[in-house]
Nucleic acid binder design. Structure first.
Lengths: 212, 212
DNA sequence: GTCTATATCTTGATAGAC
DNA sequence: GTCTATCAAGATATAGAC
């Protein structure tokens, strides 16, 4: 079943496959993967996909290996454990940075809008996967850290008035609640709502905490 | 091939030391349950407790039975399946009704305040349990129904202005995000925040959707 | 480097003795 | 009514042949 054919695949290498040594060049260089590196990448991709759409308990090592066209034993061999594999593959991307970069005026609407356009991408999936796996303390803490890094830390220093840190954290909470409804509970009415309208209405609620 | 060796590790029966005062609930404890009804009740209580604090996959039938001091076979016998047991035990209570009953003025703050005082009760636990088990479509739908019954349906008809139904749904989303932070991710900073201050700040954000 | 084979454990659920 | 005994399936993880 597995490809004994020595075909190589072009991928963009991030820091995921780099153990500990810091790369001097921070450009994402395109490399040709062969052998173990290729297999490892295939496992990583398959894991990201399965963790995103399946339940944590259901995304088994066997299923991941099968989807990757690799052997289950290699999954453990390369990543140590299933939980470690989860932590290395399920990550957020900086898709809020653009929205966050602009002025405080209209920021609430831009954040919601950015979230809604990510619907098929990594943001929703990572949050859903981590919430469903939040019985694990390691994963729970990872998600909490991500929330602080993505929202509270960039946003809090910019907010005027009292309780800036608290308000920044609560903006993140508002967003989390929206993801709960759309991406986790799959609320059909919410998903069917016009994005622009949703961005306006909910964005105004966020804005109420950003500029009280 | 199960263990032919007579191991000493077994399920400890608590018959000799049954904790009579397990729950001090002031409801319906006047009736002494006996036999099957008593066992069923013990299983139900243990399940509610375990589903609330453990991961769904980790709250096994065996663990539930062990905690209830009953036999694992009886769990299935009485409730049919693990999922059915979940649906029969994990339920919301109407703890928002009081807050919802008052005037629209200050409703946001009252809702948040009601939520925060429930911290140890059924509301938080049920939401956390259902979110973590949201890989099951049945459970996912149950939670979505509860959100609509508790929030959208009572609230939407009272809201003035456009998008009343959407705004009511989004108020529920705001609340869900707060529960995510406090009860699921166990954000220490959020939990340590003064309740009154939190009710005021986040309540104002809710109020922005209730009375735009 | 990869995969076959398996060890070990746990799950939900069932059958039948007591 | 309760529990012993067990099933069949599936999980993670490991050892060692190729």
């Amino acid at each position: 079943m597995t490809t004994a054919e020595p075909r190589s695949v072009k991928i963009v290498r991030h820091d995921a496959s780099v153990p500990k040594a810091m790369k001097q060049s921070d450009e994402a260089d395109v490399v040709e993967l062969k052998g173990a590196a290729k297999t490892r990448q295939a496992i990583s991709d398959a894991a990201r996909e399965l963790f995103a759409h399946e339940e944590y308990a259901n995304a088994s090592v066997r299923n991941i290996a099968s989807k990757a066209g690799a052997d289950p034993a290699l999954v453990i061999r390369y990543f140590g454990s299933k939980e470690q594999l989860f932590l290395e593959t399920v990550q957020f991307e900086g898709f809020f940075e653009l929205a966050m970069a602009g002025p405080l005026e209209g920021l609430g609407e831009r954040i919601v809008s950015a979230l809604l356009s990510d619907q098929r991408d990594a943001g929703f999936s990572a949050y859903r996967a981590m919430m469903r796996a939040s019985g694990s303390e390691v994963i729970r803490r990872r998600l909490l850290e991500a929330i602080h890094e993505m929202f509270v830390e960039p946003l809090a220093p910019r907010l005027k008035g009292p309780d800036a840190a608290l308000r920044a954290r609560l903006v993140a909470a508002q967003l989390a609640g929206l993801i709960d409804g759309i991406a986790i509970l799959e609320d059909a009415e919410l998903a069917a709502t016009d994005r622009k309208r949703l961005s306006e209405v909910y964005g105004a609620a966020l804005q109420g905490l950003i500029q009280p």
